[in-house]
């Protein structure tokens, strides 16, 4: 890979836990632990995992909306963690964010025109009639009517609001967009429209995406590469094709097999994980997945050392000490799964 657009090294984030009568800091929760990855210009890196795995915090650390505890974040050659005040605000023109909840992410007291215009004003990209014209063309680009600038968010459906959020992000001409579950709150028919829009924008504008998601169906459709997170750590990282065809980590396999398939005839040979993910406030020792792991080779060593994220096959990184380099599969319901998925013929 040539020099990546975004490079994250050793990112960690601790949140303080407060309690007691005086609300003192009593400890901390490590939401993100030693996360490293690169994102090349023009690609879509998906970060997947279940709630509480640290994927949203990771995205917000990149934008410095959450202050990382440790690690380096280099964007386009600039070390983002050294930026302060006005420098930081200027940098934000280049990295934007699209949120999950289309109801919470728009200011209910601002017209959608003002919402989209805000970035133009802040970065002095346009003002007056030029700004209004720009807003109209942005609305048009995301599939909304340009004459809707004077309307308020409550006049729009969830999918339309999500388009407004996308237009707001595009207004400042960013190179990189963190998409934080951008379609998971949307209905199926609207979700497909927004996915298409995101793909079109990436192609037309040469955008780079960090796509945070829990829906693996959408991830498989959109991502070039995928990082799987569990309890604050990246446990597997590879191309989307490889991940869905031959996942190494037991957790990834369980995650893939848990997706309910829209095919009533599909065999139900899924791996059902026992129990809940552990609390990040009190993570297990060693491999964080070991209490729920079903790997046949699991032993006491798994409870002792934190497994490093190693390149098990070219371009395929995984954090499992029981998986020697060179072999990529030991237990593959996912292969069967994939054929099942392909068997679901498109309607009509």
């Amino acid at each position: 890979m040539s020099a990546p657009l975004l490079s994250v090294r050793g990112l960690s984030k601790d949140f303080p836990i407060r309690g007691g009568i005086l609300n003192r800091v009593q400890g901390s929760v490590r939401a993100v632990t030693d996360v490293s990855f690169d994102v090349a210009a023009g690609e879509t890196l998906a970060v997947v995992g279940e709630s509480g795995c640290g994927k949203t915090t990771t995205g917000r650390c990149i934008l410095r909306l959450v202050e990382p505890t440790a690690g380096e974040i280099t964007f386009d050659g600039v070390d983002l963690r050294t930026l302060r005040g006005a420098e930081l605000r200027r940098m934000r023109q280049h990295i934007q964010l699209v949120f999950q909840d289309p109801y919470a992410s728009l200011n209910p007291r601002m017209t959608i025109g003002d919402t989209v215009k805000e970035g133009l004003i802040i970065h002095r990209l346009a003002d007056g009639a030029a700004a209004d014209k720009r807003v109209q063309s942005l609305l048009d680009e995301v599939g909304l009517r340009p004459e809707w600038t004077k309307r308020y968010p409550h006049e729009f459906s969830g999918g339309q609001r999500q388009r407004v959020g996308i237009a707001r992000a595009l207004a400042v001409e960013p190179k990189f967009i963190v998409l934080d579950e951008p379609v998971s709150a949307l209905d199926v028919s609207v979700q497909a429209q927004v996915i298409n829009l995101l793909q079109d924008l990436q192609r037309d504008r040469g955008l780079t995406y960090l796509f945070i998601a829990h829906d693996l169906g959408v991830v498989e459709h959109l991502a070039t590469r995928v990082a799987v997170m569990y309890l604050g750590r990246i446990v597997e990282l590879t191309t989307a094709e490889t991940l869905f065809a031959s996942p190494i980590m037991p957790y990834t396999q369980a995650l893939l097999s848990a997706i309910p398939l829209p095919d009533p005839l599909a065999p139900r040979d899924r791996i059902v994980l026992e129990g809940d993910p552990p609390s990040p406030a009190n993570p297990p020792s060693g491999c964080v997945f070991h209490p729920r792991c079903f790997h046949p080779g699991k032993d006491v060593a798994c409870t002792q050392a934190v497994p490093p994220l190693e390149e098990k096959a070219p371009g395929h990184w995984a954090a499992c000490i029981k998986q020697p380099a060179g072999t990529t599969d030991f237990f593959l319901p996912a292969a069967a799964l994939r054929s099942r998925r392909a068997a679901v013929s498109p309607a009509t």
């Binding site: 023109q93 964010l97 919470a104 728009l106 970035g119 959020g165």
Partner: peptide
């Protein structure tokens, strides 16, 4: 709130 985060992500100053 998300929309306040969005404004921060756009580079809005504290006064704004």
């Amino acid at each position: 709130a998300d929309y306040v985060l969005a404004a921060r992500a756009l580079g809005a100053t504290p006064a704004r």
